[in-house]
Design a protein around this nucleic acid. Sequence first.
DNA 1: TGACTGACAGATATTGAAATCTGTCATCGA
DNA 2: TCGATGACAGATTTCAATATCTGTCAGTCA
Lengths: 198, 198
Amino acid sequence: MNEAVVLTPERILEVTEDVLRRFGLAKATVVDVARALDVSHGSVYRHFPSKASLREAVAKRWLDRISAPLTQIAKDSGPAPARLERWLRTLCTAKQKTVCEDPEMFATYLTLAREACAAVRAHKEGLIDQVVAIISDGVKQGVFDTSDVRASARAIFDATVRYHHPAHSEEWKDPELAARVDALLALLLRGIETPRRG
Amino acid sequence: MNEAVVLTPERILEVTEDVLRRFGLAKATVVDVARALDVSHGSVYRHFPSKASLREAVAKRWLDRISAPLTQIAKDSGPAPARLERWLRTLCTAKQKTVCEDPEMFATYLTLAREACAAVRAHKEGLIDQVVAIISDGVKQGVFDTSDVRASARAIFDATVRYHHPAHSEEWKDPELAARVDALLALLLRGIETPRRG
DNA sequence: TGACTGACAGATATTGAAATCTGTCATCGA
DNA sequence: TCGATGACAGATTTCAATATCTGTCAGTCA
C-alpha cells in the first residue's frame, strides 16, 4: 500500500493539487485524493479536519506562491518609485501569467480562494503591508509625498485592482493591456511622487 | 383581455422588471411576463425576438439609468477637477446605493449585465467618453496635464473600478469605504493635475 | 501506542422520467 | 390587413429515487 513514504500534510497538498488539475474542482473528492496517495480516505482526515480545510490549505499555498517574489521586492533597497512600479508589475504579471497559461487551474484556485475568504483577507493585508514598506522607504528617501502612508498604500493597491484581481481576468486578453497598465502606473506614481521643481 | 392599452416594448420592459423583482431572475419566465401583461406569450415575442433579447433590453435600461445623471455632469461647465471628482463620486454612489437598498435586484441586474456583455461594453465606452470630455475641458482650462487624454480617462476609470464595478460590491460594506474613496480620488487628481508652483 | 483502516450514518450529487418553458406558425377576429 | 392567439415541437427545468461522498469511530496491526 503506502510506498514507505510518510504521509505529511505537505504531500497531501501536492497530490490534492494534482487531483484538482486532473479531475477538476467539481469532481475531485477526498476519496480521489486518498486513492492517489494510496491510503484510505480516513488517513487524509487525520491531517485535515474537513474537506473544506483541505481546500483552504490549497488556496493558502497558492496565495503564498504569489506573495513570495513580492516580499523580496518589498525588502530590497534602492529607489522606491522603481521598486513600487516593479512590485505592482510583478503582482499583475503573476496573475495574468497563470490565467493565460493554465486557465482551468486559475478558475479552480479562484473558486478555492473565494471559499477561503479569511485566507484571502490575510493575503491582502500582507500585500498592503509590503506596499506600506516601499512607500515608507520612498518618504524617507524624499521621493514620495504623503500624509498617511497606509491610506496611500491601500489607494494604490485598490487603483490597480483591475489588473490583479481575478474578477477582472476576462479583461486581461485586451491587446492594449500593457499600454493601459503603463498609463495607470504613470498616473499613480505622479500622484504620490514629490513634485520636482522645473 | 388587453385593457385597451397598447402593447409597447416600453410597457413590456416595465412589467418585466416587476416580474423579475417579484419572482427573481431564475423563476421569471416569458409566460409570467405575458400573464402580468394579460396577453399571450406569443405577443411578447412580437416585440422581442427571444427571451435573451428581452433580458438584454432590461439590462440596457438599467445601464442607461446609471448613465443619465453622469452625462449631465460631463456636459456641465465649471472647473474640471471638481467636475471629475463629482462625476466619479456619483458613479460610485449610484452603484453602492442600489446594492445597499435592493441587493436582490442588484444581483439580478448584475447577472443580466453579464449576459449582455455587448451592452456593457457600449456602456463603458460611453462612460469613458464622458471622462474624456471632462479631462479635455481640464486641459483647456490648464488645470490638467496629460499627453493622451483618452489613456488618462481610461486609467482613471480603471483605477476607480473597485468602487463602481459590481464584482467588488461585497467590499462596499467596509465602514472605511468613504475614507478610502477620498484617498484614492485625491491620489488620482494629484496625478493628473498640473503641478502648482509653491 | 499510535497511525491506519474500513464500515457506517447522514449529507450531497447524479440520473432519468415527467413537467414546464421557449420559440414558431397557421389561424382567428377586428 | 395586421396584431393577437394558442397549439405544438424541441429545449430546459424539476423532482424523486438512487448512488456517491463526507466525516466518524471502533477496531487492527506494526
